[in-house]
């Protein structure tokens, strides 16, 4: 059985704009899926539905076979969403406070919150920054902090919305290594990006969105050759193979 599934998922905004339309997608536990598409293709709207932040106009999202609307808190615990701009999601004044926000929402005992915060920060290598303000961290470290904030909820699925945007080369490498560690640890990864050249070699599946519709889904080797017609840059150069598409050497 798939860990998360969407059935005819449709979102139409109040002004009539179609965000996504009839998206049917099944994701199995432990998969590493890349969702690509041009700007405005509906990737972010789709991600927000998986975490229950948006309510579908039509269709539904099933988590472990159950509609996520049945228990939204449980859905948000299981499906961690890392936003595109971490600066805009920080609610804590220090790094530790930021990570503690999620576990405190779950009403865990204070001692357990502290140990989760320590463990989450250690996982992403941010322990020594725990008393600093999140806003003074570098771009790469801010992304790591956003990931730590999500990890503190102990999610099974982690959705990363454009995690490489605005990062320099070392920042991309840091985040990519972190994502691979999370995948190796058993998390299901959904990575939204249009920068396929940075990461495609590590994914098991590539899904393409175009104008709010899911237009391609399959092994990266099979799907990648048609991406340009959907507004995504063809990452392969002549003679190059998908397994070479990574910024990790």
């Amino acid at each position: 059985m798939s860990i998360i599934e969407t059935q005819d998922l449709t979102h139409i905004f109040p002004d009539g704009t179609v965000g996504i339309e009839q998206i049917n997608l099944k994701i199995n536990a432990g998969e590493f899926v890349i969702i690509a598409g041009a700007n405005g293709s509906g990737k972010t709207v789709f991600a927000r539905h998986l975490n229950g932040l948006l309510t579908p106009t039509k269709g539904q999202v099933l988590l472990d076979g159950q509609p996520i609307t049945k228990n939204l808190i449980e859905a948000r615990k299981k499906v961690g969403l890392v936003f595109q701009d971490p600066d805009r999601q920080f609610v804590g004044q220090t790094v530790a406070e930021e990570v503690a926000f999620g576990p405190e929402n779950l009403n865990l005992p204070p001692a357990q919150v502290d140990s989760i915060v320590k463990a989450s920060l250690a996982l992403v290598g941010l322990s020594r920054f725990s008393h600093q303000s999140p806003r003074v961290l570098s771009g790469g470290l801010k992304r790591k902090l956003a990931i730590a904030g999500v990890l503190a909820m102990k999610p099974q699925i982690i959705i990363l919305d454009e995690p490489f945007t605005g990062l320099d080369y070392p920042g991309v490498v840091q985040i990519l290594q972190q994502i691979l560690r999370l995948h190796a640890a058993g998390h299901t990864i959904l990575l939204i990006t249009h920068e396929l050249e940075k990461v495609l070699a590590h994914a098991g599946r590539l899904v393409i969105f175009y104008q709010g519709r899911l237009v391609a889904d399959g092994r990266p080797e099979a799907v990648v050759h048609g991406v340009e017609r959907y507004g995504v840059r063809m990452p392969l150069r002549k003679g190059e193979e998908v397994k070479e598409l990574s910024w990790l050497k």
């Binding site: 927000r48 975490n51 932040l53 939204l72 808190i73 948000r76 615990k77 969403l81 936003f83 701009d85 805009r88 999601q89 920080f90 609610v91 926000f101 999620g102 576990p103 405190e104 929402n105 779950l106 009403n107 865990l108 005992p109 204070p110 001692a111 919150v113 904030g149 999500v150 909820m153």
Partner: peptide
């Protein structure tokens, strides 16, 4: 706009009023 984004980010991490109480 920023307030909206913060609210979304809080909801995404299951913001609840039944929260951990400090010791």
């Amino acid at each position: 706009h920023r307030t909206d984004q913060i609210v979304e980010a809080m909801e995404a991490r299951g913001y609840s009023e039944i929260r951990t109480k400090a010791a």
